[in-house]
């Protein structure tokens, strides 16, 4: 196999992996702060993808323009979902939370199926087939832009958590729930905000993914699982781990697609998930709590 081909595929995988990372970042933030496992994560991404597809089909709006509006919409959606439905479940047993979100996921997948039918749709921007040449490397334009946008948004989120009062308050609530209550933080609002932010991440990631793959209503569960694979590989609750996990999974998927039958490539992800669950229950960069 020519090295150039491998290299090209690898670079593509890394770039896609950064978008995966942004998606998984949302899952990781939600888990890290609230210890809630968002089982509807991939489904939320699918909703965002449809938003991008519809905006493009109806008004020819470029998904990169839609990035912030869609993220904002998903933020509101996530905020409301947490405040209205999930909050009473924070103190309930783990499996009840899980089942609640499974129910939400089922409704989303099939709601999309009812609304848009089973056929695949896509976004074909005018520059969809353009690419940059870096020596022997041929890099898709959309993929590079999407990766850069993902990195930018992840950095913005990082700055928010490190640099702003609200961000610090959220981290305080994550570290010590009771302590946060004692010092007068409105934990319920912070949780809703966190779920909103996590949803905004996956919303933005959905917008970008719409440029890279076709969207069908049943994409949700696959990407929920992919999200879990990534955050567990990287360490649930670790922001940098989510990005790193995304890159690793993107890369391994791309290479597996090259060396194995393409349809078998997600087998590699699941095998990786099994291994990581067994060997490193806290992932590569996770906290050992």
């Amino acid at each position: 196999m020519p090295l150039e081909l491998v290299l090209n595929v690898a670079v593509g995988g890394v770039l896609t992996g950064l978008v995966y990372g942004l998606m998984a970042l949302g899952l990781s933030v939600i888990f890290g702060v609230m210890r809630v496992v968002n089982f509807a994560h991939g489904e939320m991404m699918t909703i965002a993808m449809y938003a991008a597809v519809i905006a493009f089909a109806q008004w020819q709006l470029d998904p990169f323009l839609m990035l912030l509006p869609v993220a904002g919409g998903l933020f509101l959606f996530g905020y409301a979902l947490q405040a209205g439905l999930i909050n009473p479940f924070i103190a309930r047993p783990e499996h009840s939370q899980f089942i609640l979100l499974v129910a939400v996921a089922i409704i989303m997948v099939n709601g999309l199926l009812m609304a848009f039918g089973p056929n695949a749709r896509n976004v074909l921007v005018p520059y969809a087939l353009d690419s940059f040449e870096f020596g022997p490397l041929l890099v898709d334009k959309v993929r590079l832009y999407a990766a850069v946008a993902s990195l930018g948004l992840a950095a913005a989120l990082f700055v928010f958590f490190r640099g702003t009062r609200t961000g610090k308050a959220i981290r305080a609530a994550a570290d010590n729930h009771t302590g946060a209550l004692v010092v007068g933080l409105n934990v319920q609002r912070l949780y809703a905000l966190t779920f909103g932010l996590g949803s905004a991440c996956v919303g933005a990631a959905g917008c970008l993914m719409a440029l890279l793959i076709d969207v069908t209503p049943t994409l949700g569960p696959v990407y929920t699982l992919l999200g879990f694979v990534i955050v567990i590989v990287g360490g649930l609750g670790s922001m940098a781990g989510a990005l790193l996990g995304g890159v690793l999974i993107g890369l391994s998927e791309a290479l597996a697609g090259l060396f194995l039958v393409p349809s078998a490539k997600s087998m590699v992800s699941f095998a990786l998930l099994i291994l990581v669950l067994l060997i490193r229950p806290h992932g590569l960069l996770g906290r050992s709590t």
Partner: peptide, 20 residues
Amino acid sequence: PGIKQVFYGFCLLLVIVFLP
């Protein structure tokens, strides 16, 4: 298509919220 599953989803949701 999908309406039966949406119904399942709502049943599950209602039961887990109101009759855990």
